[in-house]
């Protein structure tokens, strides 16, 4: 199996509490995957580890065609390597316009000098407008992000992730607090994105997961409990016991 990201034997503990316990997990390129699990199952910590925010106590994380280890790389380096992350809460730069937010996220050289001498090329601007169209914000380009609605901020953040041109997207509860119509659009966005890159969605809402129509991994107490299609998962007695049944 040619995997894009391979996590094997990873453990991490905080003051004796094992947040992640010998977790192994792999995802192929251009795959859509949903991760579910009860609170404290280690979903967010898993994302923290992959993005370099938390250093695991043990285990390996292998990334990409070149099979590089992500351990020891800074968050910025990991992001540059092609892993984008969306936080649970919408985190966009509210004091800046939608356009500025997107321009900042566009794939480009990230050094201070490159940023200092950056000139907006017509190509970049086309891409920004294209993304704005995808996330339904084409007519909001010059509004400050802080003035957007909650759902629009979520889309903007997804748009920023797409602008990075990543190979792997880690999305934390994208549908939280959205109206049904907004959810539908979000689902479409993620499914569309999964055509070009791998997308991992952490979500509580089973309805949303069902609509994603993809493989599901269930985490429990820091390790994988079950993996498979949603129907397969929902039939699993263990999963029902620890998560669905409650």
């Amino acid at each position: 199996m040619n995997s894009l990201l391979e996590v094997s034997g990873v453990s991490v503990s905080f003051d004796g509490f094992k947040a992640i316990n010998n977790l192994s997990f792999a995802i192929r390129s251009a795959e859509l995957r949903a991760i579910i699990g009860p609170n404290g199952a280690g979903k967010t910590t898993f994302m923290d580890i992959v993005t370099g925010k938390t250093k695991p106590d043990e285990g390996r994380i292998i990334w990409g065609d070149l099979s590089r280890s992500l351990l020891g790389m800074s968050e910025a380096k990991i992001a540059q390597a092609g892993i984008g992350r969306k936080f649970q809460k919408p985190t966009v730069f509210e004091d800046q316009t939608v356009e500025e937010n997107l321009v900042m996220a566009l794939k480009s050289k990230r050094s201070p000098f490159a940023a200092l001498f950056y000139k907006r090329s017509p190509g970049d601007m086309r891409r920004v407008e294209e993304l704005a169209g995808e996330i339904n914000l084409a007519d909001q380009l010059y509004r400050k992000a802080g003035e957007l609605s909650h759902g629009q901020k979520q889309w903007l953040e997804i748009g920023m992730l797409l602008a990075q041109d990543p190979q792997l997207l880690l999305v934390d509860e994208p549908a939280a607090g959205m109206t049904p119509a907004e959810r539908e659009h979000t689902t479409a966005l993620l499914v569309e994105a999964a055509k070009t890159c791998a997308v991992v969605v952490v979500e509580h809402d089973m309805e949303f997961v069902r609509r994603l129509n993809c493989r599901v991994t269930v985490l429990h107490e820091g390790s994988v409990l079950a993996e498979g299609s949603l129907d397969h998962i929902t039939a699993n007695q263990e999963v029902i016991d620890v998560y669905l049944g409650r």
Binding site: A76, K77, G84, R85, F93, V103, A115
Partner: peptide
């Protein structure tokens, strides 16, 4: 863009970091 980035750092350092 440099200004954008530093204001981004001011408002949300971690987000800027995850943008690479």
């Amino acid at each position: 863009k440099f200004g954008s980035v530093i204001r981004g750092i001011r408002d949300n350092e971690a987000r800027v970091r995850f943008l690479g």
